[in-house]
Amino acid sequence: MLLSVVAGVDGRAESLAAAEWAAREAVCKGRPLLLVHAWSRSPYSLVSVAANTAQRSQAERVLHAAAERLAGACPGLLIQTAQVEGPAVTALSRLADGSELLALGRRTKRGMAGLPGGSVARGVISRVKRPVALVGTGEGQDAEVPRSRDVVLGIDFGSPCAEAIDFAFEEARLRRCGLRVVHAWCDPQPSKEEAGASGLIEADHREEERSDPLTAVLQLRRDKYPDVPVIESVRKGKASSGLLRVAASADLLVVGHRLGKQSHLGLHSSPTANAVMRHARCPVVVVPYS
């Protein structure tokens, strides 16, 4: 049985953008598309019966409109729809864990927690074991038109995410585009005794020293995906700044997220992952790893 690409749809512009992006992914991967609308049932009362009926009707309208729109853009794509009851985070997380990947809309207005998409996106990313895509308005348009810009992957030598590397290579293969792999690093602040000419000379060789391990990390996937052109980039500076700069014209940005790290606000990921999810100008896929 083929796993579906799932998109959460609530009628807002960003969720429709995510659905369009998910439709393109489903076409590329040869998977069915499942559009989902999650809503919570009100406690039983005469008033709540009418409220629940209204929610079901609204969900049906939203799903039908989205499915009709995508069917016209992607002829031949198998599109299914589903209403799920319960808290959105719980319902979407349950579906995501049985899917190929889950796409959610990314709001342009940021919440207090600093992540796009609000509490639902934070909650889902912190729970699921499958990739989650965050898509903003204008990033998932023209689902029927393949784009050819590169996939960008961020790598941290401290905790290289094999799942994210595999995902990025596969996405580049499906899109028949290049893969740009970015590793950024910063020198620790030297003490007064360490600062000097010898330290400056040594720093000149740091970039070259880090290029070799990056090449070694990628070699296995290069052998598996010989048709994917790979450009390696080792940059001194903040990782988020380097990734955002390279991904400014990219088709997709892929980052890893370590499972099990949560705070009272929900998702507790690295500052780099938080920054790129907030500011990237392209869809961002967060790939979990243990």
Rank of each mutant, 00 (worst) to 15 (best):
D97P: 11
H64M: 04
L102H: 00
A121Y: 13
G86C: 01
D97Y: 07
D97G: 07
L102Q: 12
A121L: 15
V124I: 04
G76F: 13
R107I: 00
A73R: 14
L78E: 12
I125A: 12
S126G: 15
E85F: 08
T53F: 10
E85T: 06
Q80E: 15
R94S: 11
S99P: 00
S126D: 12
V124Y: 10
K109N: 08
L104E: 03
G118L: 13
L102E: 01
E100G: 01
A67W: 07
E85N: 02
L92H: 01
R56K: 11
G114P: 00
R106H: 00
E85L: 11
R110E: 07
L115K: 04
A88R: 04
A91C: 08
L92P: 06
R106N: 10
K129N: 14
V84Q: 02
V62K: 05
L115H: 10
Q55C: 04
E60Q: 13
P87C: 07
A91Y: 00
H64V: 10
G98R: 07
G111R: 03
A88K: 04
L78V: 13
S93Y: 10
A67T: 03
R61Y: 03
L104P: 01
G105C: 09
G86A: 13
T108K: 13
Q83F: 00
E60V: 06
E68K: 15
Q80T: 07
G72Y: 08
M112P: 09
Q58A: 02
Q80S: 08
Q80Y: 10
L115Q: 14
V124P: 05
R110N: 08
Q80P: 02
I79H: 01
A121R: 11
A91P: 11
A71N: 02
V84M: 01
R94H: 14
V120N: 03
S99H: 05
V128L: 07
R94F: 11
E85I: 05
G118M: 14
R110D: 01
V124H: 10
P75H: 06
A54M: 13
G117K: 11
E85Y: 06
A66G: 12
L92C: 00
G98M: 07
S99D: 03
P75C: 02
A71K: 12
T108A: 14
R107N: 09
A121F: 03
R69I: 13
A54T: 11
S99E: 02
A66C: 14
P87I: 06
Q55K: 13
Q58N: 01
S93K: 11
L63S: 10
A121W: 12
A54W: 07
A88G: 04
G117H: 05
L92F: 06
G105F: 02
S99T: 05
P116K: 09
S99Q: 05
L77Q: 04
A59M: 00
Q80G: 09
E68A: 15
G117C: 04
L95H: 03
E100P: 00
V120C: 06
R107E: 08
Q83G: 06
C74L: 06
E60Y: 02
